[in-house]
Design a protein around this nucleic acid. Sequence first.
DNA 1: AATATATTTAGATATTTATCTAATTATATA
DNA 2: TATATAATTAGATAAATATCTAAATATATT
Lengths: 86, 86
Amino acid sequence: MDGVFKALSDKNRRKILKMLREKDMSAGEIAKSFNISKPSLSHHLNILKQANLVQTERHGQNIIYSLNTTVFQELLTWIYDFKDKE
Amino acid sequence: MDGVFKALSDKNRRKILKMLREKDMSAGEIAKSFNISKPSLSHHLNILKQANLVQTERHGQNIIYSLNTTVFQELLTWIYDFKDKE
DNA sequence: AATATATTTAGATATTTATCTAATTATATA
DNA sequence: TATATAATTAGATAAATATCTAAATATATT
């Protein structure tokens, strides 16, 4: 769970997640919306992947990133504990 | 919102929040559960306060920290957007 | 097979964040 | 008012994270 919070603590990474909410995208396609280098973006994608917030699938030359919503459920549960004291 | 995620990205700070879920506590009382220095703990408390996750009230020499659950609601909303696509 | 495209990995540097000790502020009490 | 206690602020250092360029890997195309 630590990895999830770490992953979400960065603005760029949250922006990536919001983009993937709309549609699955390749690394390069995602990169167009940022003005950091591709290796830097790749680093962020990797952190999101390690945290299980996204998953990947290769399609030819492209690696397609998509949201993995299962972890969001865990997050919801974590936060609920504070809102309603279990 | 950035401050909230940054605040939650640290294990010590999440532990503080969990403790405050049980009862309001003074800075010194919280400090007993950690083996970092008091200034370091104070730093974490400050980050939680800046993020509006906790609030403070002075009682004599003590400063009592308590959870501010309003931000948790915003967090829930943010996460729901991913789970259910608005 | 050679070349082009998409992406990642390696390695270095810069920035941010956490931590510490020492000093300061604020309140309480003898 | 002098002293003790609670907490924070200041300033320095250490550790973690983000970023970059260059090089490597994997697939596609000519």
